[in-house]
Computed example of a mutant assay.
Amino acid sequence: MSKVKYYYDPESLSYKKIERKKRTTFKYAFIFMLASAFFGFIFVFIASQYVESPKERALKRELQNAQLQFELLNKKMAEAETVLANIADRDNNIYRVYFEANPIPEEQRRAGFGGINRYKNLEGFDNSKLIIETSKRLDILQKQIVVQSRSLDEIAKLAEEKEKLLEAIPAIQPVSNGDLTRMASGYGMRSDPFTKVRKMHWGMDFTAPKGTPVYASGDGVVERADNAATGYGNHIRIDHGYGYVSLYAHLYKYNVRKNQKVKRGDLIGFVGSTGRSEAPHLHYEIFKDGEKINPINFYYGSLTAEEFNKMLENATLENQSLD
């Protein structure tokens, strides 16, 4: 119940009841509400500046966690870059040197991304610099990994080719030392056994009894196994690939046929004296890119140092060939 207020009227010398007008009541009420709204706004403003809401605290924690994750990501990328740099160094200075491949230029390995701004959509945020730098670093790292991966694929292919080349090169003596009577004649100017005239002897003659096994000196495919070439009699030619061909002449008989694949050390025929031959022996030649070369340089796969030196000494003697 509202209190009734009075005022003293000096003219009537009596107390009269105060009658409040509705307009005055409304004015006071409006002023009170306006003042309340003002002070409420001030309180909310101050609270928003100095007091965090639960939602703001949650967002702040998420932001701190995101920054921490970016820092951890950058540390992991630094470790990955160190490992990748080590692989790239070995790739350029060991693998590619060994397999005779050109090194990958450093500018190609570390090239960035030119042209349009790829990171424009990441600009305008509080941590834009951190996000953009991390994104650039990650993109460059991914590109380096792709370059290195392709390089290792190339090295693997070169290694496979190198292995095939080493298996293909005619690298062993075609007649075992235990079966040899002697190494009769080497590559170079020799006396012809029939005309007694000095002429070029394009291979090496290994004397051995008729029927002595003859072995393929490297992997390859039998190109010929016939007696259609003048002077060679029964002979075999093996195409080793990479420009190498080996020839085995004056055979007694064959153990292979044309187009047959053979491995180094496979039995391909037997020593004989067919064709233009003075006595049972194997005439052995090597071709490289169509040119006849000295077979003396291709026995690293079967002879000891002492055996090779002895063969080299005999091969340099200007004696009489057997064909």
Rank of each mutant, 00 (worst) to 15 (best):
R198I: 09
G220W: 05
Y232G: 00
G178H: 15
R224Y: 11
A228P: 11
G233F: 10
S246M: 07
L180V: 03
S217E: 04
W202V: 10
G178A: 15
S217Y: 03
N177F: 11
Y252G: 10
T195I: 09
Y242D: 05
G218W: 03
R237P: 08
H240A: 00
D192W: 06
D205G: 06
D219R: 12
G231K: 05
V222Y: 12
R237W: 11
D239N: 12
V197Q: 09
A216S: 15
D205Y: 04
Y248K: 00
I238G: 01
T181W: 08
E223Y: 14
Y244S: 00
Y248V: 03
A228R: 15
L247S: 09
H250N: 10
S246P: 08
L247F: 13
D226Q: 09
Y252D: 14
G186I: 02
L180K: 00
R190Q: 05
G218D: 03
Y252T: 07
I238V: 09
M204D: 11
V214M: 03
G220A: 04
D226R: 14
H250E: 01
Y242L: 03
K253N: 12
K253F: 11
Y242H: 02
A229H: 15
Y232W: 13
T181I: 15
V197C: 08
Y187H: 05
N234E: 07
